[in-house]
Design a protein around this nucleic acid. Sequence first.
DNA 1: ACTAATATTTAGCTTTGCCTAAAATTATAA
DNA 2: TTATAATTTTAGGCAAAGCTAAATATTAGT
Lengths: 217, 217
Amino acid sequence: MTLAEENYLKTIFHLERKLKSEVSTNALAERMQTRASSVTDMMQKLADKKMLVYKKYKGVQLTEKGKKAAAYVVRKHRLWEVFLVDKLKFHWDEVHEIAEQMEHIKSVELIKRLDAFLGHPDFDPHGDPIPDKDGNIKKAEKRLLSELIKNQIGICVGVKESSPEYLQYLDKKKIKIGTKINVLGKEFFDGSMMIQVGRDQFFVSKQIAENLYVQTN
Amino acid sequence: MTLAEENYLKTIFHLERKLKSEVSTNALAERMQTRASSVTDMMQKLADKKMLVYKKYKGVQLTEKGKKAAAYVVRKHRLWEVFLVDKLKFHWDEVHEIAEQMEHIKSVELIKRLDAFLGHPDFDPHGDPIPDKDGNIKKAEKRLLSELIKNQIGICVGVKESSPEYLQYLDKKKIKIGTKINVLGKEFFDGSMMIQVGRDQFFVSKQIAENLYVQTN
DNA sequence: ACTAATATTTAGCTTTGCCTAAAATTATAA
DNA sequence: TTATAATTTTAGGCAAAGCTAAATATTAGT
Ligand SMILES: [Mn+2]
Ligand SMILES: [Mn+2]
Ligand SMILES: [Mn+2]
Ligand SMILES: [Mn+2]
């Protein structure tokens, strides 16, 4: 598995779960910041390696083998993110790019020991679940903040979007994983909400609210 | 700096210090397990980048810029080795290959924080000095065990050779960094020695003795 | 000083992963 | 139902980093 192959597999893995269908060449090209023709080349190579099923003009679908390989890349990525935040005290908006490189280090033993060193974490710093060695992902019962109604209380457990900009907004508002959020009111028209975080009360737009995952007791 | 370029620079850096002269194409090819023609190609590229001075048929010499870049790769390598041994509890004979990959992760901030996390170590698990951010290496006063004479006592501070085989031999003999070694006798003819380590007394060949660094009070 | 051996460079090819432009297929819409 | 638009694939190339084989320089031995 080369670095490029691992990056493609991981992206296909994420897109498959999001779209719940085969992944198209263009969707992949956009996500990977590359050209459709480059994607086609790689799809043919990964199909040869039995990592996915490729039907000309019809997109691709990961095989079991491909899914497992992809989940392992995700596992490595998220474990390294935990390391960077928990041990090296990086901020959660700074770790993605570095983990993007570290996920490609080749050593099964390394990941085993890293996992133990970190205390076998189940979630990464953005609240995303860490697949186990066999590629199984346990999905937590979580909902978007935007789904709550007036007077409901949620605990922040993750983010849907994890761009530095969004994460920095959350920081400014003192929202992080574990933070209690009280919905004081909701505007029907635009989906914006009045919420309480600690002692502060403020408005959040729909766009903010539908990118934050919360758990309701 | 690509991965290949970093590996070349690091190897040239090591060879220059060992040979104390320009580094020849063949010397480099042998160390890097590659062909002389591939080395020539890379030397031309690194000369274009002003990392070294290349004179056809005369070998290469790092520029200040090249030396600094190389020392930084060495710094990263050795810091990761400390991480692997101190934090992940790898054995000192298992870390080289992994560090060989980790040294190429690109993030200045990462290395800054790693260094702090490890407590700003001065030496790696093999006793080799870790260059500072500016590429300066402090060299410890250390001698080879083979240089000691009868009744001298040395503390093991590093190894010259760090192959798994050699390191595993030392383990078997309970010699590690910090171990006190007492020279009970030395055979003039073949350079072999009788030494005491803890309660054990045993012979070591010249080959063993001249790959172990010790400090004499 | 010359020839033979050794070291080094050059020329030309290969693979990976990317690109552009052109061709082919599928989707949309009048 | 066709024509146009959008998507996808193919063809042909490029750069990095390696290789083999051939050419060239250097070094060593007589
Ligand atoms: Mn990556
Ligand atoms: Mn994450
Ligand atoms: Mn390396
Ligand atoms: Mn070392």
